[in-house]
Amino acid sequence: MTDTVEDRIARVRRVVDAARIVATDPSLIDPIAASTGLSREGVELGLRDHLETNPSDEELLLLVQRAVPAAHVHVILSANVFTAPLRAIAYATASSPSVSVQTSSREPHFANALLRAIADPAIFAADRDYPRTLSSGEVHVYGRSATIDAVEKLAQAGLVIRKHGPGFGVACVLPADDLARASVGLASDIVPFDQRGCVSPRIVFVVGDSDRVNAFADLLAAALDRANDLIPRGALSEDEKTDAVRYVETTRFAGRVSVGASYAVGVSTSIMIPPSGRHAHVVRIPSLTEITHLLAPVAHLVTAVCPNEREIASFFPASVRLSAFGMMQRPPLDGPVDLRRI
């Protein structure tokens, strides 16, 4: 029997419908907050504003077109933001009616709730040994580079591995941009998931002189400070705390930094990638053309860029997601978040 585009879209819709139910389950908030380190408000924000529960027909069609039909897909959810299982499972079901899911041991709550709500025996939880039983099909692995490498090494011949690794987002503030609006929009891109998403912005290029750049950094710091009143930052891990202190001290030496209880915004003329946890690094550039050489060493890690302007798009590969300020963490459900390797 042929698996038509309509069949595949219908399967994805059922997954999205299930996610809509899960998103309104208040019993999930505390367990997810505990496992992710996010504040309760941060979890609520993720479920309310960053779960793709209303995709358009065009988006679903594109999602299905981007998915390669397969006999079976095994999904490995190793390191993700907590809402990511929806997109990962949706993308897998766009490929195949038969999907096994290895949830993250550290954040299993959302994925397990989603699988329960999907209630389809062909879409089921499986453990790490499950791929050994497969001789064909695909493995979609979402995780850190080391995890991806390990999966690749252990995978049986005949399995196609689709890798979704770590990355980060980049924002650009153009000469014509209104600094206040851009800073508020960018703060709302930094806050969700406390900046641990692979499209979370970490670097901001600001075109202009040092006064303009410093003014933007101060506005962004103020916006992050205000945002914390509504969505308090969650707990940082010990590593994140250590990296944050080093980042602040390094930026004090190399440029300037505004530090608050829940954020840091650094400024310099060189690229620094701050740690996640609501830290942004603002880089002063005289013109957009500087981006190419400044970003060159990390260009392969860039997954998303804002704003969606043609003059910016020309500096990045077609695989990066372009969006408006404030929309970086709301990519349409038209494929994996990270389009670099599909």
Binding site: A79, R144, G165, P166, R196, D239, T242, S276, D338
Partner: peptide, 16 residues
Amino acid sequence: AAGSPPRGCSITIEEM
């Protein structure tokens, strides 16, 4: 620091 595995899929300082 050996640390705990990082959360999320954003690139970590350690990875860089």
